[in-house]
Design a protein around this nucleic acid. Sequence first.
DNA 1: GTATTGATCTTCT
DNA 2: GAAGATCAATACA
Length: 156
Amino acid sequence: MIVETEAYAPDDPASHSYGGRTRRNVTMFGPPARLYVYRSYGVHWCANVVCAEEGVGAAVLLRALEPTHGLGRMRERRRLDDPTLLCAGPGRLAQALGLTGEHNGLRLDRAPFELIRGGPVEVVAGTRIGITRGADRAWRYALSGSSYVSRPRPRA
DNA sequence: GTATTGATCTTCT
DNA sequence: GAAGATCAATACA
């Protein structure tokens, strides 16, 4: 269950799509409902959902999940037992799900992916994390009260 | 509990 | 050559 996300827009200085296409971010400018995976700090993979029409360049970064299925495989990939740390952060999430650059550009509405609509939830907004530009936009969204988010108390 | 650092990819200066 | 949508290990208070 997705419990934490951040939004990135083309007119947003913190976004990879700011300033146009590069070899890395072409997926962001492609059709929506695809996965944009990029390498972060040379070490981690981070996964986004492309969520604007082709050519726009907007996406939502998946920052944290509450693991509900496949805990065993997540633990194998992460070499870690604590379920609250398995997917608490974009790099950890990608590692737990086994996402890499191979999955960049794949459709999320067919195998091996499946998105399931959840019930109504209470969401809190706060400032985004780990960025220096565009930090004033409160575009981080977290499930209220969840203990699986990467930072417990989003600052508004 | 906070602070610092190494990992070393991609983009930009 | 530097910085960045990060994490984990280590060093301190």
